[in-house]
Design a protein around this nucleic acid. Structure first.
Lengths: 235, 235
DNA sequence: ACGAAAAACTTGTATATACAACCAAGATCC
DNA sequence: GGATCTTGGTTGTATATACAAGTTTTTCGT
């Protein structure tokens, strides 16, 4: 591994472990250069790339600092919570709460082009980042398009990943809302006190029609959506 | 202007003018270094940054090439609140709360590429749909790029619309969050009780750099973001 | 003519150095 | 006490150099 990459790895570990909290100062170019026995330009490159990735922000004459740690994603990209967490250097895990077949509710029937009370697959999964719940995923899946969905092991592979393999996405619709979570959601997200949550409602299509309808709910304090702005946000 | 930036400008002009078509080869690091009388490392930086921006792609041992031109992001045009309200058949209006020049806070300076306490324009506007507040827009504008911003009448024309005319957008970054509104926000949105709010933080760029940083806050019960799903959502 | 070796060229990584721009804090002067 | 100056630390830009790694072209031997 290149030296500048090793320095990046080191710094990511420090940030992930909490040793370097948000908005705390990180070692200067010269300090890093000495610690790792490299030239300043090499240390600088590590700082620079982490800044471009939105992990750090820097101010000339002042120093380099840890940016806000909230997870981030892009609306334009296909949303994959597991990769997103891994990309931030955190450990991803998932808890499968439920995986059943049930009679299709009216709303879901409309969204997926089924008839009411037709069988539909339903999965409920909590996505965790470093052991902390980051997103509750409630997903309805069209059994006509993905008949083996209910037999999968979603501790190992996210529904998103499995669906991408079985029924390649051709289109996706999104709604983003700020909502007040109900008790059920609070429980699974381990929210002691209710707080504003971001809910992404998403319907995906493959060539043959609607594949799934998913409700992705995340605590507002832990998750944000969007391209990374490489500077700290207030509050 | 820094030398590496001049080289970038030159290359961008060549690409935009069509002199360097897609997938054509661009000068090598050494060629650029000689043409511009700079060191190879400086020429390299120009190539590197254009690559990070997706303008070029490079292959070790082969060369650097013009990438396929970006397709315009749909996100650029989505969030024009006035058109959105009018599109739903409601009457749009706006209340200008504040329009001043003030010393640039650190965060804003970083975001807009200004120096701290440099003068920056600030506008605070409430967007109303059928008389009901729908969005509070707090916007910082780079006076170097839009010097006449402070003289505009934003009761008639939204900042977004004016900025689109003066400094055509080339790029936009977004963050979407679910937040708990402060008292100030509640007041201007006429929220009797605080409720989860959707906050869109958006930084826009024109060809010459960052133009404005805007915080768009809407009550979660009145506003949704994203493509319209053609079915009702559960409440 | 063919294949292998060598050369030439490209990008990638790394170092050492120099100076400029900027900021914060302490020292100094009045 | 307050404004100004100095100083040290930090990031930003630029140069010259060296070698590594990958690709393409040329050369050379058979």
């Amino acid at each position: 591994m290149a030296k500048f990459a090793e320095i990046k790895e080191f710094m990511l570990r420090q940030i992930e472990s909490g040793a370097w909290p948000e908005h705390s100062r990180v070692p200067s170019e010269n300090e890093l250069a000495e610690q790792f026995s490299v030239s300043r330009m090499t240390a600088r490159r590590a700082l620079q790339e982490l800044t471009e990735q939105g992990i750090l922000y820097r101010t000339q004459g002042v120093g380099s600092f840890v940016a806000a740690l909230k997870s981030q994603s892009s609306l334009l990209q296909i949303h994959n919570i597991a990769d997103e967490i891994a990309g931030r250097g955190h450990t991803y895990s998932a808890t499968l709460v439920q995986l059943t077949e049930l009679p299709c509710p009216t709303i879901v029937a409309t969204a997926l082009g089924l008839k009411r009370n037709d069988p539909v697959f339903f999965s409920l999964i909590v996505h965790l980042s470093a052991g902390q719940p980051l997103q509750l995923e409630a997903r309805y899946v069209n059994p006509l398009q993905v008949p083996l969905y209910i037999q999968q092991d979603f501790q190992e592979q996210t529904p998103h990943h499995y669906l991408s393999m079985i029924a390649p996405l051709t289109e996706a619709e999104h709604i983003v809302e700020a909502i007040w979570p109900d008790n059920f959601t609070c429980q699974h997200l381990q929210l002691k006190k209710p707080e504003p949550c971001l809910r992404l409602t998403r319907r995906t299509f493959s060539r043959d029609g609607a594949v799934s309808l998913a409700y992705l709910t995340s605590p507002g304090s832990r998750y944000r959506l969007g391209g990374h702005l490489n500077f700290a946000l207030p509050r």
